[in-house]
């Protein structure tokens, strides 16, 4: 149990997917201009990440390993993620139109989001078992939402601030992100 708590904490803060592992930077910079969008993207990523990591874990252990074709994992994983995103989109559209309205536009963007493929691969390289995979992925996803939300609030403030011309847009966003990353890396002392 302690192990799982440590794993969850690490996934949430010290190994934060955006600020220390640099995965999912594109949505981090692209969709974080408004709070609402950041939350929508965050939850869509959490949802897809959780399903795809569980599916890819099972596929890897029971299919690729038994056939000893582990080297196929990149191709298999990206295909699984791409088709899952498609399926999830169709499913949500049918079952819950309200949720589809909230997440719909973010779903197609997730296929090329490196965070989803990255976490699926990280779970394999870390040799997590199934329970660890689920816990790790959930907290990575929550960490993603957390950072997206904080960052979108900061960006709403930046918009109103007088920024030098050359720094407008992405440069100032990156510099703010670096300050945020310093704060997150210092949390490492807690465990």
């Amino acid at each position: 149990m302690n192990n799982l708590i440590a794993l969850a904490f690490a996934a949430f803060i010290t190994e934060n997917i955006i600020l220390t592992q640099f995965l999912g930077i594109c949505p981090f910079l692209g969709v974080s201009t408004k709070r609402k969008n950041a939350l929508g993207m965050g939850f869509a990523v959490l949802f897809v990440m959780l399903i795809s990591s569980s599916v890819t874990y099972l596929l890897y252990t029971f299919v690729l390993k038994t056939l000893s074709i582990e080297y196929m994992k990149t191709i298999v994983f990206i295909l699984v993620i791409a088709s899952l995103v498609q399926m999830v989109e169709t499913f949500i559209k049918k079952v819950s139109p309200a949720l589809y309205k909230a997440l719909g536009i973010y779903l197609p963007l997730i296929t090329t989001n490196c965070a989803v493929l990255g976490v699926a691969l990280l779970n394999i390289t870390k040799e997590n078992n199934f329970v660890e995979t689920v816990v790790y992925t959930t907290f990575i996803g929550l960490g993603f939402i957390f950072v997206m939300y904080i960052f979108s609030m900061l960006r709403e403030k930046i918009d109103k601030a007088p920024v030098p011309k050359a720094f407008q847009g992405i440069p100032i966003a990156l510099i703010v992100a670096s300050i945020l990353a310093v704060i997150f890396s210092r949390f490492g002392g807690i465990i």
Binding site: L19, T20, F22, L174, A177, S178, I179, A181, V182, S185
Partner: peptide, 8 residues
Amino acid sequence: VQPAGAFL
């Protein structure tokens, strides 16, 4: 060389 430095 730390993550924060990459963004900076």
